[in-house]
Design a protein around this nucleic acid. Structure first.
Length: 945
RNA sequence: GCGCUUGUGGCGAAAUUGGUAGACGCGCCAGACUUAGGAUCUGGUGACUCAGGUCGUGUAGGUUCGAGUCCUAUCAGGCGCACCA
């Protein structure tokens, strides 16, 4: 009987649905295991074979863990807010919700065909109100919090208010936008609006006047990780810098904890490193410089405190507020000209060409270490957003300062013994310091650095700075606060209304604030975001509900926020919601959260390293501070699946003709390569009839063949519609079955590596499953399994397999596990094994990989329950033992001969026997054996003299 | 520039603490069965070769009885950050 995968798969998918095989409930008697995939954005194109890669990998692991006796949570849902649906809505007027739901249905249909063990009762959609209820709730919590630097955690804003009432900002150590200096009395005398502004400076979700990445084409702001090379990731439109009042999240407050947490989780080194880079911690010192002949002073940040004596000029960022203050009248005209030039340069231009530009301000700063006057320059090479927006320039030991100094003819003073700075700066942080003043010689300070190493000098200078109160030791981070507003329709609305311009949160018990209906998804004529088109969009404080905005009276009825939240809002805590998706009292019940804890295994692409994977760690840490999440890190182990690229096929048309030549003959003619749909090519052989039918213009095409076949050329490219290289999983499922697809995707190569989709090997996986089938049914449909005693050989084969597969799954080496299956099944077939005692563990082991087939075979073996609850077989070492062990005897790294030993022969026995063996002399040219080394893997090495 | 990472047959790739390099699959070759087929099954398949062997894991050294694996240098590809002081 043939392996009829179509019937089998249909049958079991239906049973799983009916029996709710994959439903999971909290069970205190079982250990939990939480497996999660990054949930997909349901795009209109549907799934291609790249999408399920990670899902299959995690599904195998989930099923394995379940058989191991764990209570496994393996949920799936949709990241349903997103730009494409909105763009489509703008073009067609179709509501994004409709498009999104259609796409979700399509995804679901495709996913169901692959046989995943998802618990669909736990599905979440970020766009559904009972989900975004908790996104809004978290936002309100962040609004009502500040970050205490001393205790390194979020605290209720009331605590801050209490503190301000008692002390003002004196001694306050909280994460803040800018340093404020307010006395308790001043605070108490402020009106509501002023107090609101002060609190904004500390809130974790806050309104900030910040430079944002504004994308005019998309009509919205973008987060830093949504901009690459000065253009938007989505669409590739130019992005410019613009100052806007925006909602922001104080992610930077958590920089240190985000960094420290990396040491506690099992992620790949490369992705941890990417996050460390993005956080960009640097230790240094802030030093205050006074401006000569004025009351002004400013602070610079440096990581090279040891170079204080090599400062020859200062540089301010053009955007710095100090620029106007330090510019002298004589220089004003030139400075203004320069500022205008900088303003005209786009972010992109600044990133691409690093032109050396700048202007002298006319003022001088006094080096607190030497009393020397250093000219203050203004240049775009100093960034406003990093450190203090001002630097001390040490041209001898910083290449950028060096280039600037050379360009403008400023002095260069080397400070390290033997450093030659005539051609380039000496940037390395090593060597012995010189040129600092000798002891007692300097009227300004008695710091002696000469003779110290750079590292020692940095330390000594930092201590000196702290002691003399010239500044302070400071840690700086590159990580910026996240901009949290988007000028779009299709996103979570902010639960915020404005009373006299002061933001107010909609009461927690009135959430969710539902996304209003609009007629038009474009910005309004007055330039408001799309929500400006909503008519029913005002908050009535007395009725506590949303009302028509015509009623706004600014007494009890107020306008609601028009911005919506960005894409990462909904994806930042979804893993918590899966634990308790139908709870309408809390994001997740405390008890339930304590059961599931956090995600044990998270699978997804590495492209989210500086986006989602930072934001959700931040979000979770915030919730953790309040005890809403019981684990500080959301994702314990992370596996990054590689991207599946497309493998395009080409046909070669002779120029100005309708004749196509096979790949091997193309060089004989002048040909043009043309992309051909990979779905009508198999093993690079073109299906000529299908090709003729593909496009009307090819209907009467002529072909020049090689050995009777038309061979296509190929190339690895991005999988995309325009290259005709998109392989749809439905097609593979139809032709080979879901189990073959699952097996083959895992057989393609290591999960974490990017690789092209290449259907050339899929037959091998299909053949393997058919061989498995062949162990159960003979060709004429007879059932083969019997209760007979298994042979020693077959027991050995299967126990070897148990050992190997168990190890490989734990290491995510699915490919080698499948190889082991192939070997074992080959051996069992050869042994004509029919014993249930062997076939049963085989089915148990294979079930995570090929669940449909194994359910069927499990039933064939007489079981009534589902194979997912079958126990994971245990290896019995007894069966693995050999009767005799053949040892290879080698010297000089080569095997020379072999000898047989009992498997439990001792090392000494082996040494003795080899030493005395007659055959030895034949191979050793009469040389004497001086040493016999017994090593694992049946190898004995002898040393000759 | 800094950081991370990967280099093994025609291809995708295996290889426990250093221990028979190339498992397994694809492709290719040969054979079987066949009223040629993109079917199935069996065997072979790193390269040279005087047929005994020799050489082979990007390159060059080193440690070792023994190196894909460890060390040093170097080359090439991929990814991330990048005027971050």
């Amino acid at each position: 009987m043939d392996y009829n995968f179509q019937d089998i798969e249909k049958k079991w998918q239906q049973r799983w649905r009916e029996r709710k095989t994959y439903r999971v409930v909290e069970d205190e008697n079982k250990k939990k295991f939480y497996v999660l995939n990054m949930f997909p954005y349901p795009s209109g194109a549907g799934l291609h074979v790249g999408h399920p890669l990670g899902y299959i990998a995690s599904d195998i692991y989930a099923r394995y863990k379940r058989q191991k006796g764990f209570n496994v949570l393996n949920p799936m849902g949709y990241d349903a807010y997103g730009l494409p649906a909105e763009q489509y809505a703008i073009q067609t007027g179709q509501h994004p919700e409709k498009t999104t739901f259609q796409n979700i249905d399509r995804y679901r249909e495709q996913l169901d065909k692959i046989g995943f063990s998802f618990d669909w009762d736990r599905e979440v959609r970020t766009c559904s109100p009972d989900y975004y209820h908790w996104t809004q709730w978290a936002f309100e919590k962040m609004y009502d919090s500040f970050f205490c630097n001393k205790c390194q955690k979020a605290q209720p804003i009331e605590k801050l208010i209490e503190y301000l009432n008692a002390n003002g900002t004196a001694g306050l150590d909280a994460a803040q936008t800018e340093q404020l200096d307010i006395t308790a009395q001043e605070w108490q005398q402020m009106d509501a609006r002023q107090q609101s502004d002060v609190l904004m400076n500390y809130r974790i979700a806050f309104l900030g006047e910040t430079m944002v990445n504004w994308c005019p084409k998309l009509g919205t702001v973008l987060a830093n990780d949504e901009v690459v090379d000065g253009v938007s990731v989505r669409g590739g439109f130019p992005v410019e810098q613009k100052k806007m009042r925006q909602w922001c999240l104080r992610v930077s407050a958590y920089a240190q904890r985000l960094l420290d947490g990396l040491d506690t989780i099992e992620w790949s080194e490369s992705i941890k490193e990417t996050q460390r880079n993005w956080i960009g911690r640097s230790e240094g010192a802030e030093v205050e410089f006074k401006v000569a002949d004025s009351d002004l002073a400013f602070t610079i940040f440096t990581t090279r405190a040891d170079t204080m004596f090599g400062v020859t000029f200062m540089v301010l960022a053009p955007e710095s507020e100090l620029v106007q203050k330090v510019t002298t009248d004589a220089q004003r005209e030139e400075v203004e000209k320069y500022l205008a030039y900088v303003k005209g340069r786009t972010e992109r231009e600044r990133q691409i060409d690093h032109k050396i530009t700048g202007v002298f301000s006319g003022s001088y700063a006094i080096n607190p270490f030497t009393g020397e006057k250093n000219p203050i320059w203004i240049s775009e090479y100093v960034l406003a957003g990093y450190g203090t927006g001002a630097i001390m320039a040490v041209p001898a030991h910083d290449s950028r300062d060096y280039a600037f100094a050379k360009h403008f003819g400023l002095p260069i003073v080397p400070l390290i013994e033997g450093a030659d700075v005539s051609e380039e700066s000496y940037d390395a942080k090593e060597g012995i310091v010189c040129n600092s003043p000798a002891e007692g010689k300097d009227p300004y300070c008695d710091l002696v650095l000469n003779g110290l190493t750079v590292k020692e000098a940095i330390q000594a200078t930092k201590e000196f700075v702290e002691k003399q109160k010239l500044g302070r030791v400071k840690v700086n981070y590159r990580l910026r606060d996240a901009i949290f507003s988007r000028q779009r329709y299709w996103g979570e609305p902010f639960p915020v209304y404005y009373k006299d311009g002061v933001p107010q949160m909609i009461p927690e018990d009135c959430l969710p604030l539902m996304l209003p209906e609009v007629e038009n998804f474009l910005p309004t004529e007055t330039g408001e975001p799309p929500l400006g088109n909503a008519q029913i969009w005002a908050w009535d404080e007395t009725q506590r509900k949303v009302v028509d905005k015509a009623l706004i009276d600014n007494k009890t009825i107020f306008p609601i926020e028009l911005y919506t939240m960005p894409g990462f809002a909904g994806s930042s805590a979804y893993y918590l919601r899966y634990m308790d998706p139908h709870n309408d009292k809390a994001l997740v019940d405390k008890k339930v959260d304590e059961y599931w804890q956090n995600v044990d295994l998270y699978v997804g692409g590495s492209e989210h390293a500086t986006g989602h994977l930072i934001y959700s760690r931040f979000w979770n840490k915030f919730l953790y501070d309040y005890g809403y999440s019981c684990k500080e890190e959301p994702f314990q182990k992370l596996i990054n699946q590689g991207m599946i690229q497309g493998r395009s096929n080409f046909v070669y048309r002779i120029k100005d003709s309708n004749t196509f030549v096979s790949y091997g003959l193309k060089d004989k003619y002048d040909t043009t390569p043309i992309h051909v749909d990979v779905n009508i090519v198999s093993n690079d052989v073109l299906d000529i009839e299908a090709f003729k039918a593909w496009r009307p213009e090819y209907a009467d095409a002529q072909f020049e063949l090689e050995n009777g076949n038309y061979i296509c050329g190929w190339a690895v490219e991005k999988m995309s519609k325009s290259m005709f290289n998109v392989v749809n999983p439905d097609y593979i499922v139809e032709r080979y079955g879901a189990d073959t697809l699952r097996l083959y995707e895992m057989f393609l190569g290591p999960i974490s590596q990017s690789k092209p989709w290449d259907s050339n090997g899929i037959d091998g996986c299909f053949r393997f499953l058919r061989k498995v089938w062949g162990l159960f049914y003979s060709r004429d449909g007879q059932l083969l399994p019997t209760d007979s005693e298994p042979s020693k050989d077959s027991l050995k084969s299967i126990h070897k397999l148990i050992q190997k597969v168990s190890q490989d799954i734990e290491n995510f080496s699915y490919k080698t596990a499948i190889s082991a299956f192939m070997i074992c099944v080959g051996e069992l077939a050869q042994q004509k094994c029919t014993s249930k005692a062997v076939l049963e563990p085989l089915v148990e082991l294979l079930a995570p990989f090929a669940p449909h087939l194994c359910e069927e075979l499990w039933e064939v073996l007489g079981h009534k329950d589902s194979v997912c609850d079958a126990p994971w077989p245990e290896v019995n070492e007894e069966y693995l033992k050999e009767d005799t062990e053949t040892l290879s005897i080698s010297f000089n790294g080569k095997t020379r001969f072999t000898m047989d030993f009992a498997p439990d022969a001792s090392k000494e026995d082996i040494e003795k026997t080899v030493m005395e063996a007659d055959s030895t002399a034949r191979y050793t040219d009469g040389k004497q054996i001086v040493k016999v080394i017994v090593v694992p893997h049946r190898i004995v090495n002898i040393v000759l003299k």
